[in-house]
Design a protein around this nucleic acid. Structure first.
Length: 429
DNA sequence: TCTGGGGTCCTAGGACCC
DNA sequence: TCTGGGGTCCTAGGACCC
């Protein structure tokens, strides 16, 4: 069988790069992006990485370092990042039909059937084009399995940054390069398994490639065994052009301040649930169950702790915000307890089924008329909120003051997704 | 004071059934 | 001493991903 050619395109420091596209002054300066609620650092420019600030670090622990080095810090701006992601993916799709959008900042390409004379050169050009068209720098790794493409991408970033493209297939002795990667750098090997492998003297990707498969299977399950197979060039994962239907859809948030009253939590949970409804309708799915949970601050052991969750079964699978909010409030009432400082809550929709499976019976179901009217209402709500503003029309039960809302003090404008925040060019100078 | 959010898959073990 | 055995389904928890 002919060997496959997979490429993995990964945006460099994606969120930080997005901020730079619209603010030229940031080029060459250290840039960091925070999680929701301004808690942790979730994206870092190379300059920030070089300062030794780790991924996921709570910002308050690094405040001094940040000030001393003039790190420019942003609150997360997901509408902006989502739109920039879309532009990058659209650019890739112009040149490669077989594309799998793997995450907000990564795509797998299957180049096997394109019959490109020089794959590495093609990828270098692709990289240059994406940067030119979108302003986002990317790295590309190429290999005969997805795991090898991922590993090649890691090498492109770590060892060959000046080129930004690495192709295992250019080298007669790929093991020499696998040896440069620690097992934890591999796709599918996390911290726990890396520690385990280390104890058994399997330290780098080459060691794992030649490890005993039975042993790996026993201790790391089939997932670990697949990593070994893929390192040896046996494909266990094909390109998935169409996204798989989702099994869960969640909306959870930490609060900007502790919330103690039932009313506040009801507002927050109602808001979360409306968002779930919107996501479900976009996915064209219906939820069978809703899970609602509440948490106090797990990091503060001086406060009394309480966490609980409940699953509410819906009378019928639904994506109607009104139905969902009623169910979520029922769940919240079941688990809310007075006397705690709540830090986080969330709603998760479970047991998703495709909307097309929903069966109405025109002659028997008396709820049909009402259900149809409500689904038209939801369509209208979605249209308005897409066009005007994400929260233009909402439900009264969500409240207006939003005292639970997260902290976001350093947000950049939604340059590309909000008319009010579009960049202005001063042509008078 | 301050610590993200949204997912997937696999496995072990219990419940249940015949 | 010996206490049936095998199959399926479900769930919680763990590990991983970005």
């Amino acid at each position: 069988m002919k060997s496959k050619i997979f490429a993995l395109v990964d945006c460099n420091n994606f969120y930080a790069s997005c901020e730079r596209v619209f603010n030229g002054k940031l080029v060459g300066r250290p840039v960091a992006v925070l999680s929701n609620n301004d808690g942790c650092i979730i994206a870092r420019s190379n300059e920030v990485k070089e300062l030794g600030i780790p991924m996921g670090a709570p910002i308050y622990q690094w405040q001094e370092m940040i000030e001393r080095n003039n790190v420019v810090v942003f609150s997360a701006n997901f509408p902006l990042y989502g739109d920039m992601s879309h532009r990058v993916m659209a650019t890739l799709a112009e040149f490669v039909p077989d594309i799998e959008i793997y995450s907000i900042d990564e795509a797998f390409l299957d180049l096997t059937n394109l019959h490109i004379p020089n794959v590495t050169e093609f990828c270098k050009e692709l990289k240059a084009t994406v940067e030119k068209w979108t302003g986002i720098p990317v790295s590309i790794g190429i290999g005969s399995s997805k795991t090898l493409a991922k590993a090649a991408n890691k090498l492109a970033k770590k060892k060959f940054r000046n080129v930004g493209v690495f192709n295992f297939q250019d080298h007669n002795n790929p093991d020499k390069y696998l040896e440069m990667l620690e097992v934890e750098d591999l796709w599918g090997i996390g911290r726990k398994h890396a520690k385990f492998l280390f104890r058994h003297n399997i330290n780098n990707a080459k060691d794992l490639k030649y490890a005993d498969q039975g042993f790996i299977r026993k201790w790391l399950s089939v997932m670990g065994q697949r990593v070994v197979l893929e390192l040896n060039g046996t494909c266990c994962y094909e390109l998935e052009k169409l996204p798989k239907p989702k099994k869960n859809i969640a909306f959870t948030r930490s609060f900007g301040h502790y919330q103690e009253t039932y009313e506040q939590l009801e507002e927050a949970v109602s808001y979360f649930t409306r968002k779930i409804g919107e996501k479900l309708r976009k996915e064209e799915a219906l939820a069978s169950f809703l899970q609602i949970f509440l948490l106090t601050n797990l990091h503060n052991d001086k406060l009394p702790q309480y966490h609980n969750s409940v699953i509410v079964r819906l009378f019928k699978p639904s994506n109607n915000s009104i139905t969902l909010i009623k169910a979520a409030i029922k769940g919240l009432k079941a688990i809310f307890k007075e006397g705690y400082k709540y830090k986080k809550a969330g709603v998760i929709s479970l047991g998703l089924i495709p909307e097309s499976h929903k069966q109405y019976d025109l002659f028997i179901d008396p709820e049909f008329e009402q259900a149809l009217q409500q689904s038209n209402l939801m369509d209208t709500l979605d249209k308005i909120n897409r066009k005007v503003d994400a929260d233009a029309v909402k439900f009264a039960v969500e409240g207006v003051r939003r005292e639970w809302w997260m902290n976001q003090t350093r947000k950049s404008p939604r340059y590309t997704t909000s008319w009010k925040e579009i960049p202005l060019i001063d042509s008078s100078r």
